[in-house]
Structure formats: C-alpha cells, structure tokens
Design a binder for these strands. Sequence first.
DNA 1: CCTTGAACCTCAAGTTACTTGAAGGAGTAC
DNA 2: GTACTCCTTCAAGTAACTTGAGGTTCAAGG
Lengths: 147, 147
Amino acid sequence: MNLHIRVFTIGTLAKAAGVSTPTIRYYEEIGLLPPAHRTAGGQRSYDDDDLGRLTFIKQCRDFGFGIDQVRVLLDLSVSSSRDCTETRDIAQRHLDEVREKLAELRLLERRLEGFVTRCNVACAGGPGQDCVIFKDMVAPAKGGCCG
Amino acid sequence: MNLHIRVFTIGTLAKAAGVSTPTIRYYEEIGLLPPAHRTAGGQRSYDDDDLGRLTFIKQCRDFGFGIDQVRVLLDLSVSSSRDCTETRDIAQRHLDEVREKLAELRLLERRLEGFVTRCNVACAGGPGQDCVIFKDMVAPAKGGCCG
DNA sequence: CCTTGAACCTCAAGTTACTTGAAGGAGTAC
DNA sequence: GTACTCCTTCAAGTAACTTGAGGTTCAAGG
C-alpha cells in the first residue's frame, strides 16, 4: 500500500504491459492512446490509468481484435451505457472469423500432410529421382509432389 | 487439338490462373515471373509456359508458402537434380508452422467462446447492465466480459 | 474510317500493425 | 564529468498485394 502514485517511463510501461516501446509511440500516433504527459526534458511519462488503458488494448490484441475493433471496444469501455451486448456481438463476429480461419487451416494441414507423405513415399531413395511434383502443381487442386 | 499456340493477354492469363492482373504485374516486378513479351502496342503477352509457371506459383501460395519459399520451389522446379527431399523439407517445415498456428487459433477460439458465453449469461437482460468486462480486461489472462 | 468502351499501361500511394535504423538529447550513477 | 542506458523524432522497411490517377491500345460496331 505504499505506492499510491506510480510513474512510468515509456520503457517501464512497456514492460508492465508486455508491449514494445515503439508500439506505445505508435499507439499514441494513431490515437489509441492519448498524447502522453511529458517531463521537463520532453520524455513521456505515464501513470496507472495509462497502464490500465494499454493493458486493455494489449488484451484485445491478444484476443485477435484488429486495431479498429479495439477502438470501438475502448469507446464502449468509457460509454455511460456500458452496452455489453454490443461488445458481445463484436466478440461473436470475431469468433466466427476465427472459426472460418480454423477450418481453412485444418484443410491446409490435410493437404500439406498428403503432400509430405507423397514426397516421402516417392522419394525415399533420396535425391535424383524423377520427381513430378512440379508437373502436378501446375494442374490445380490435385495435390502434388512425386505423385 | 486445334489450339497449338495459345496467346493470353494479362487479363485472360489472370482468369486462367485465378489471380488478379495487378498481382501478375507485381510478380513480374519482384522477379517471380520473367519480364513478359510485349505486343507492338506495348501490352503484355503470355503463352502456356507462362500459364504453367503462374499456376505453379498460385498453387504454392494457396498452400500458404511465402513468396521467398515460392522462389526456392521455383528454382527447385527447374534444377537438374530435382531434389525432392529438399522440397519435402520445405513443405514439412511449413506444415509445422501451420500446426503451430492451428494450436494458437484453437486456444483463441476457446477463450473467445468463454468470453461470449459470459457476456450472454451476464447481459441476458440487454444493455444498461453494469458490465464489468473492461475491468476484467485490464487484469491479464483472466478472460473478460461481465464476469 | 471513326468512335466507343473495355482492357491495358505506368507510377505512386495505401493497406495492417508494427519494427528497425539513424542521429542525437535526457537521466542517473560513480 | 563522463559513461551508460534510455529516451527523442523522423524515415523507411516488412508481406503481399490493392487501389487510384491519368493516359494508351485494342476489338467491335456503325
């Protein structure tokens, strides 16, 4: 209970929030963070409120929200109505996107697995084989490598 | 058997390979495609070899390979040794990356699910609740929204 | 032959979310 | 005072294209 007012340099704030110092300057530049207070020498100076805001941003980014979505979430976070349903809708849409991406990646994983497997089967003897991967690759959607 | 020599404009080539025309110009600019032949009027002109090369590139990109990896694969595709093991190793490394990304996304999916669920539980009554998502978000790694 | 409209040309800048680098000033410890 | 780290701004780089401005070529129709 002895640190009633904590003051951060940009570097200590960065460590506390888990981001880089250029990122903090960048967030200020694009308006995610307000212009920082400055010391007499012109260096940026932060307090716990700033840490809170930055940590919030960091959490949102870790959730995969884009900068523009973070902007909306920040606005919601200070709006008087505290409209949680809007927040949930943003998160739900984002979740849908994540699931789409997951489906794509799962498909890609299977295709790559097949590719590597065919390589291993056909090229077990090492290099010098008459690998036909590249002919296969030119014919779309058939999978390739040493087929 | 009547189309022994097919000639493509950049637009028809783009459709045939499933990419955009600016993308073709971009690939030429960065050296993935050789400088195109030109008509008397200065417009680009392509043949089936170009279609083959571009289709190969497209397939690699669909596989998620980066441009630099595509460059290597293109080199391998014309190398005399046809070293399939090298090709397989590139694909294997890429597969590993895809699997890492999948793991990340699965985790993210679960976190977002929890987030949305908590929103629904706490905010079923609609807006105006005292949503505490934003306080939660400031405390890292706890999940948020209306906790 | 001439005009119209689509498709083409080049060059520059925008996109996302930062990172990296250069050149120099501020703050702190000895 | 000097050594060292951290800070400052500004510019450019990253990946892989996309978009836009302003102008040219081509094929078809009248």
